[in-house]
Design a binder for these strands. Sequence first.
DNA 1: TAACATTCCGCGC
DNA 2: GCGCGGAATGTTA
Length: 191
Amino acid sequence: MALAATSPAERKPSVLAEAIIPTADGDFVAQYSAKGLCALRFPALSASGSPPASTGGRTITTPPPGSGLSLAEFKGWLAQTEKALKEVLSGESASSLPPLDLSEGTEFQQRVWRAMLRIAPGEPWSYGKLAREIGIPKAVRAVGAACGANPLPVLVPCHRVVASGGKLGGFSSDPRWKKRLLGREPAGMMK
DNA sequence: TAACATTCCGCGC
DNA sequence: GCGCGGAATGTTA
């Protein structure tokens, strides 16, 4: 029979609600689908490395009625997201996370992301260790690619995954964020 | 097929 | 011990 025309990552979750979450590091933007938090954008660093000033958290878009996401549920998720975000930003692991909608990723990617959620602060993993954790030790590079596709930076602690040999590794948006976040880890293994 | 947020090994210094 | 170049390796668009 013919090959399937659709690729595995064809379905993107539709964003029903969007909100700004103010933190000490700037304003994060969280996007929600009917299943949960599906994307998180973090503020761009200025050239000097200082985060932009907060605009004061306010919701940009609320979920429309009958969309599958109630306003009350959205507010609950938002509160959880904000709490978890601030916990991670202060160098701790999130005590509780909102539902995460990872349906945009392939099975392999979701496996990588889920494994990253288990990473404890202060003990950064290498791409190699992460690859070994999900059962494919040689897929180190694929793991790196999956990290780059991570829709929920910070919450899914992709910044705690570093290259072996004490090298920092890469980062999708700004390598500064990675260094900044790692600097707050309790152990601070990174010299 | 090409590209990747890697890793490993061998050299030379 | 450190740095460089090249090969290997799995997943994705």
